[in-house]
């Protein structure tokens, strides 16, 4: 779409871990951009440094070289423009706080009135369908509901981009489908920009408007694929489309090539 402006720019990102036994190059050279209002999925073979990439983007890890830009300004540390949803919801939510307390905690340091904060929290819980559970503690809820709390916390924080790190890897298949539809819905109704990392190929094709396929470590962008499945998606009909099958087969082959290390070396700057 023409009115979309660049929100996030990752340029020649490289991350080398210095360990006692020598250095390990986790990320070779990653470049991509993401526009405002986009839902981008990042998929890659296991151990390809997806989490490292996210941490660098979110400012939790300093990259060895390269640049992450948010709205044209370099990201050097955690920023209010991003909110993270972690894979381990059980370790990301604070069990001593109620659901409401968890969602409210990141808002405390924002200069908001009590009423504004309450409204944000209620609205976020409403969005994930957990308004009735506000006074429960996270451990009283099922895994899927706990991850909804983590999503509500991220929504209430009002970021410009929601970053999700394999958020549904630890929930069962049915819950997973519900949560995927929740992500689609947040994207559609609230126009949220979402960067979604997964190792699940079907999930990436079902959710994304674009799928970025990563190579194996040291990682580069192997393919940047547009998913032309339209904005209206449904667990049954979309997944039954021939185009869906084509796309998932394509991504699957790319991942297999990545695993075998057959893909071509990093392309020069795009």
């Amino acid at each position: 779409m023409p009115d979309r402006s660049t929100l996030l720019r990752v340029e020649h990102l490289r991350k080398v871990y210095e360990t006692g036994a020598g250095s390990v190059e986790a990320i070779g050279d990653i470049s991509f951009t993401m526009n405002t209002g986009e839902l981008v999925c990042i998929v890659g073979p296991s151990g390809c440094g997806k989490t490292t990439l996210l941490k660098c983007i979110a400012g939790l890890l300093p990259p060895t070289s390269g640049l992450v830009e948010m709205d044209g300004a370099p990201v050097t540390g955690p920023t209010p423009a991003m909110a993270l949803v972690f894979q381990e919801y059980g370790r990301s939510l604070y069990p001593w706080l109620t659901v409401r307390g968890n969602v409210d905690l990141p808002l405390r340091h924002k200069k908001l009135s009590r009423a504004e904060r309450d409204k944000l929290v209620t609205d976020a819980l409403e969005a994930v369908g957990l308004r009735h559970a506000a006074r429960s503690h996270p451990w009283q809820l099922s895994g899927g509901m706990q991850q909804r709390v983590a999503i509500a916390r991220a929504i209430a924080y009002q970021p410009e981009v929601l970053i999700m790190d394999e958020p549904f890897a630890a929930v069962d298949a049915q819950t997973r489908a519900d949560l995927e539809d929740l992500v689609r819905e947040l994207h559609a109704t609230r126009g949220m920009s979402i960067l979604f990392v997964t190792h699940d190929i079907d999930e990436s094709v079902y959710l994304g408007e674009r799928v970025i396929v990563l190579s194996r470590s040291p990682t580069w962008v192997q393919e940047d694929l547009t998913i032309d499945l339209g904005p209206e998606r449904d667990q049954v009909t979309t997944r039954a489309l021939p185009r869906f099958t084509e796309l998932r087969t394509h991504v699957y082959e790319q991942i297999q090539r990545a695993k075998r290390g057959e893909a071509s070396a990093p392309r020069p700057t795009r």
């Binding site: 939790l60 209010p80 972690f86 604070y94 905690l105 405390r108």
Partner: peptide, 28 residues
């Protein structure tokens, strides 16, 4: 817990909030 700490960092929770809402309850 490292993930709890990372959560606090990513949401830019202040030092005092971190002490009161994360470190002390976690150690309780």
């Amino acid at each position: 817990d490292s993930v709890m700490t990372e959560t606090a960092t990513s949401f830019q929770i202040t030092w005092w909030e971190r002490l009161w809402f994360l470190v002390l309850p976690a150690a309780s």
